[in-house]
């Protein structure tokens, strides 16, 4: 069954959280993972759920040869 907007945001956040440090996920990987569990989920809703996670700062886009969605973390290349 399709998730509500809040459930979807949380579902995606958990996917990102569980993958953190193990696998970098692209926006499309997230969409595919959502559709696998919830085949009737609207794709545009997935896009906007990711947007919400980014806009609220719970997730960030990163770039390591490709663009990924991750939990905010320290920049490895920066000096600390």
């Amino acid at each position: 069954m399709a998730l509500s907007k809040e459930e979807l945001v949380e579902f995606i956040y958990q996917l990102v959280l569980k993958a953190q440090g193990k696998k970098q996920l692209k926006a499309m990987d997230l969409q595919k993972a959502v559709l696998k569990e919830h085949p009737d989920q609207d794709k545009t809703m997935v896009k906007f759920a990711i947007k919400e996670l980014i806009d609220t700062g719970r997730c960030v886009y990163t770039y390591f040869g490709g663009s990924f969605v991750e939990i905010p973390h320290e920049e490895g290349a920066a000096k600390h």
Binding site: K51, I54, D55, G57, V60, Y61, T62, Y63, F64, S67, P72, H73, E75, G76, A77, A78, K79
Partner: peptide
Amino acid sequence: GGIVGVLGYGSGIIGRY
């Protein structure tokens, strides 16, 4: 760099250190 950017955007900033 791989993380720097402005809030809401995943594009437009390219990190160098």
